[in-house]
Computed example of a mutant assay.
Amino acid sequence: MTNAAIVILAGTESHADMGRLVNGLEAAKEFAQTDGDDVELIFDGAGTQWIPELEDEESDYHELYQAVREDAAACDFCAGAFGVEDAINETDIVTLDDHDGHPSVRSLVDDDYEIITF
């Protein structure tokens, strides 16, 4: 059994960022599909900007996102800082504010999660 926290930090500005997003989603999907594994998918920093795009059914990666969406959460502070707070609030994606408005990476480490960033 493996616990993994996939953290998407890549923004939406470049082809390289999109590549990091897709690789992160694919990694999350692999953990989600493996019996006994537990995965948390966290959109943090500029990565929060992906959620409104991925929620759009016309997105090239909407289907991949849907495969891992139930494991997804977003940084509460960063959603506001990157201007996507309202769009995320229109979804049922949970926002995390455990540590000064951000997700607590320490608590994930304490719970034996491997932290993988994209």
Rank of each mutant, 00 (worst) to 15 (best):
D98L: 13
C78K: 02
Y65R: 13
H62S: 08
Q66Y: 04
T91G: 07
D92G: 13
V7R: 06
G11N: 04
N3W: 10
T48P: 08
E53C: 03
A10K: 02
F82E: 11
D35V: 11
A32T: 02
E70H: 06
D37V: 08
D76S: 10
L108F: 11
Y61I: 01
P52H: 02
D44T: 04
H15R: 11
F82Y: 11
I6Y: 00
F43C: 01
R20G: 09
E70P: 01
D92Q: 10
Q33C: 14
V94K: 15
L41M: 07
F77N: 13
C75R: 03
D111W: 14
L25W: 02
E70K: 11
W50S: 09
T95G: 01
N89F: 07
D71M: 10
I115S: 09
D111L: 12
F31D: 01
E90R: 06
A72G: 11
V84S: 05
G83Q: 01
P52G: 14
A10L: 03
L96N: 01
A16C: 06
L9W: 13
V105F: 15
A27H: 11
V68R: 01
E13D: 14
F118T: 11
C75N: 00
S14R: 08
G19H: 01
D110R: 15
S14T: 15
V94N: 15
G24F: 06
E30N: 14
Q33L: 13
E90D: 10
D110W: 14
E30D: 15
G19I: 04
I42C: 01
A28C: 07
A16I: 12
A28W: 03
L54G: 00
I42R: 02
I6F: 04
E40G: 08
W50G: 01
E57T: 07
R106Q: 15
D37E: 11
T34Y: 03
H15L: 13
D71Y: 14
Q49A: 09
A74P: 00
F82S: 04
R20P: 03
D44V: 02
T34V: 04
E114S: 15
K29V: 05
I6G: 00
T12V: 10
A46P: 11
L21T: 03
W50K: 05
